[in-house]
């Protein structure tokens, strides 16, 4: 069953304050993604992998085309009302950015709890579940009540992952989830991704390591073919 569909999607950036420079990034994307697939986005640095993910999340606006998400009904992220996108993000699509971005002074445990609260899934068992997840991701107990903003890069990334993986999403967009992790933590995260796939979650992931791609992904999409020829 198709869950994501891109139709004639183009993306360019017009830099008005830099002499109107136009960056043509992606062109003519037409593709479908089915429920339960694990897609790897590949292509050289700067090709537009993060841009692709951000468009799926509604964070970037396609210059033209449709990005349809099939929940109970079809929602075109490229021209929906804000609250529809927000609602989709609350319950349906989770996104792990390359860098953690959170409110200052909010403790780690609350950041993770918040996902469940937003999904109205927070109950008396939730804290145990959250603590278990943080422990599995090797975030020490002494850090749970601290804001992650002072954590190391790898720790921040694991908090970022915990924040999204705790939730009950149907689609996960992961931008280099293992980039700054050591081998032990890498394999822990890979296991977590695998268990999401078992639950039929659809995953689109950017990961440079070919070994990992082979281990988890069902399909690769090389963005090479969407490079506009005028570049």
């Amino acid at each position: 069953m198709k869950i994501i569909e891109l139709k004639n999607v183009n993306k360019k950036f017009i830099l008005h304050n830099q002499k109107g420079t136009v960056l043509n990034v992606l062109k003519n994307i037409n593709l479908e993604i089915k429920t339960g697939e694990c897609i790897a986005l590949v292509g050289k640095s700067g090709i537009g992998k993060s841009t692709f993910l951000k468009m799926l999340y509604g964070n970037y606006l396609p210059s033209s085309g449709e990005i349809n998400i099939y929940n109970n009904n079809k929602i075109n992220i490229a021209n929906s009302l804000e609250h529809q996108i927000i609602n989709l993000r609350k319950y349906f699509i989770g996104y792990v950015s390359q860098f953690l971005r959170v409110l200052p002074r909010v403790p780690t445990i609350e950041i993770v709890s918040d996902t469940l609260k937003q999904q109205s899934l927070f109950d008396e068992h939730s804290l145990i579940k959250i603590k278990k997840l943080l422990s599995e991701l090797n975030i020490q107990e002494s850090m749970w009540n601290l804001s992650p903003l002072t954590f190391s890069g790898g720790e921040q990334q694991r908090v970022n992952l915990a924040k999204t993986l705790i939730g009950n999403y149907s689609i996960l967009l992961l931008d280099e989830p293992t980039a700054s992790l050591d081998d032990i933590n890498k394999s822990i995260v890979i296991d977590m991704i695998k268990s999401k796939l078992k639950k039929d979650v659809t995953i689109i992931v950017i990961v440079h390591d070919k070994k990992i791609r082979n281990e988890i992904c069902t399909r690769e999409i090389n963005l090479e073919k969407y490079i506009p020829n005028d570049n």
């Binding site: 951000k54 509604g58 964070n59 606006l61 996108i85």
Partner: peptide, 8 residues
């Protein structure tokens, strides 16, 4: 959307 306007 706020993050869309700020990021793109």
């Amino acid at each position: 959307l706020t993050d869309r306007v700020l990021d793109d």
